[in-house]
Structure formats: structure tokens, C-alpha cells
Amino acid sequence: MSERSEGPLSRAAAPLNAQVVVVTGAARGLGALMARKIADRGARVALVGLEPELLKEAAAQCGPEASWWQADVTDLTELSVAAQGIKEKYGRIDTVVANAGIAIGGPLLDSDPAAFNRVIEVNLLGSVTTARAFLPALIESRGYLLQIASLAAITPAPLMSAYCASKAGVESFAHALRAEVAHQGVKVGVGYLSWTDTDMVRGADQDDVLREMRTKLPWPANRTYPIGPAVDRLVAGIARRSAHVYAQAWLRGMQPVRWLLPPLIAAVGSREVARLAPRLAATAATRLRAVGAGGAADEAARDRGRVG
């Protein structure tokens, strides 16, 4: 029986080594490593992102059948063109990992409104756009969508209001979408990560005040975790088509007590913010852009679009 003649139910049961997997935000960091480890398990992968040279390099590490596609996840036209191209190249799409994201830090009133809004646009609306672009193919394959969220979806954190709002939003979006598409055979999962050694976290840690604030978080949320084991857990969850995937095992235990966290954070966080307020004010001008190399890539892509 040919690959195209297989029924949708048989494709849904395919192991990872028989799948076509799309990863957004795949030019660097978490996305690039996920794509590579998924490819190591035999899948054909398509990497989507903003930086063509890095995407090309990352795809080359994923084997000869990997491909890369330059697209902004907030642009439905670009992403739909990529989705169509991937579908035409491989004949189907079985799994999509909505991973693209950026972050800013600092108090709301010190933030640049455009930069704050861009975090919501990329992280939340970019995930919505990703679902719009790829769901038709996933419905056809009875596939799986993994939405990458964060510890920030479980617990609020002062000085991270844009990121927390966006990740709480994508968590809720994914839960709602799960119920909408279940009858069509599509499974939807949410991936949770604590602070993991990525470009984004390293970029945030370049800010002395934000780094100090993070050290005041209770253990185990106050440490940075290696990226390798986190990605291994995510890939294992993708292979299982899990509803919830935890990049650090202790995050699972946060779910039953998450209702306790907002008042706790309000009490402890308010004292720390008050203590750091003078330093935050003095360094506010350094926090007007998204952190890390991924944030810089997003800004550069938008600048190119404005010039074009």
C-alpha cells in the first residue's frame, strides 16, 4: 500500500519515525534542538523560522530529508505558504510544534508599548496563526499539535507580565482547541518548561536586576535547567501525543497547587519589586526590546518588512 493511500486512522497511529513533523521557532535554541532530536528518531522534519542561514544550518543537522521555511508566525499568508509547501513536499503533515516565542522584562509602565504588544502578538496570536495554517493538514492526517507554553502559564511573575499573559493565553487556547478538534481525530498538547538554558533565558540574565529577581524565586524555580534533558522530555511527549508534557518533572506537581500561587507571588513579589524599584527605574532604558538573539531576529525581520 502506498504512503498516500493509507487511511487517516493508520497514519494517526504511526510511530515518530514514520511522521512528518513541523517545528516553528526552529532556527536556534529549543526549536532547533527539538527538530534535531525528532529527526534522530527517524521523522522527516520541516523547520520554520525567521533566519534563513541559521535555519539552513539547523536543517542540515537533521538529515537529508529535512527542509526549512522562512516565515513569520504572525503572518498568516507566509505561514500558509509554508504549510502548503511542506504538505506538497512530503505528502502530509503529522505533527506541528508551535514553539516560536519572544520575551521582554521589566515593569509594565517602563515598557515600550510596541515591544510589549509584540510579545503577545508572537507568542499568543502567532500560535493561533500556526493553528490556522496547519490544522487543515493535521485534520487530514488525524495528527497532533503541541503548543509550547511555560511555567509562566501556571504561575504569574512580576516584571514578566507580557510573557506570562501570552503563555497563559496559549495554554488556555490549546485547551479550548483540544475540545474543538478532538472529533476530527486531532490531538492537542501543551508543553511546560521552567527556566531552561536557551538564548531567551541567557538574554534575560544579561539584565542584572532581572537576574537577581529570579534568584529570589523559591526552589526549584530559581535555577536554570539544561536544555538537553528538557528537549528529551518534550520529544518523548510528542511521540506519545500527550495532552500535557513537562520538560522538568517537578512541573507536573505544580498543577494541583497552582491556585495558591497568585496570592503567594503577590505577597513575596511585591516586596522584591519595591526593593529593586530604584535600580529598575535607573536601568529602564535597557529593557525596551525583546531579550536574546531570538528577540533581535524578530526585530530585524520586522525592520526588513518595513523597509521592503
Rank of each mutant, 00 (worst) to 15 (best):
E88N: 14
A157K: 09
A26D: 00
P229R: 03
D110M: 15
G169Y: 07
G63P: 01
T215I: 07
V307D: 11
I139L: 14
T283M: 09
G29T: 05
G295E: 00
A32P: 00
I265M: 14
V231F: 01
L260P: 08
R4L: 15
Y163L: 04
T224G: 08
R211Q: 07
G185R: 02
D232N: 06
A12W: 04
V48H: 04
Q184F: 13
L79A: 00
P136V: 02
I154D: 01
L79P: 02
T196S: 07
L30T: 06
L76S: 07
L276I: 03
T130I: 05
E78I: 09
V170L: 09
L76V: 09
G295L: 04
A39Y: 04
G269N: 10
S111N: 07
V268K: 15
Q147G: 05
V181I: 14
A165L: 06
D75R: 06
T283A: 15
L234G: 02
G143F: 01
N17E: 11
R132Q: 15
R202S: 07
G25W: 08
A290G: 06
F173Y: 13
A290D: 08
L108V: 14
A179S: 13
L47I: 08
G305D: 11
L177V: 04
D199P: 00
L47P: 02
R279A: 08
V231Y: 04
A243L: 12
R240M: 09
P263G: 11
N222M: 01
V245Q: 02
G295Q: 03
S161H: 08
F134K: 03
T74K: 08
G185C: 10
A114Y: 12
P52D: 13
G189W: 00
L16A: 05
N99L: 06
R258G: 05
E53Q: 14
A27L: 09
R28Y: 08
D40S: 09
S5L: 15
A168T: 10
S150V: 04
R240A: 09
A230E: 01
L210D: 00
L54M: 14
G85I: 04
R4V: 13
R214F: 04
I120Y: 03
L125G: 00
G269R: 07
V48P: 10
A98D: 09
G63M: 02
D110Q: 12
D75Q: 13
I227R: 08
K167W: 08
A66V: 00
R302F: 08
A149F: 11
A168S: 12
V45M: 02
K167Y: 11
L159A: 04
V257K: 12
E171S: 12
E140F: 01
T95E: 05
V181M: 10
W259V: 11
L55D: 00
A179M: 13
M160V: 12
E3M: 15
A71N: 03
S5T: 13
H244R: 15
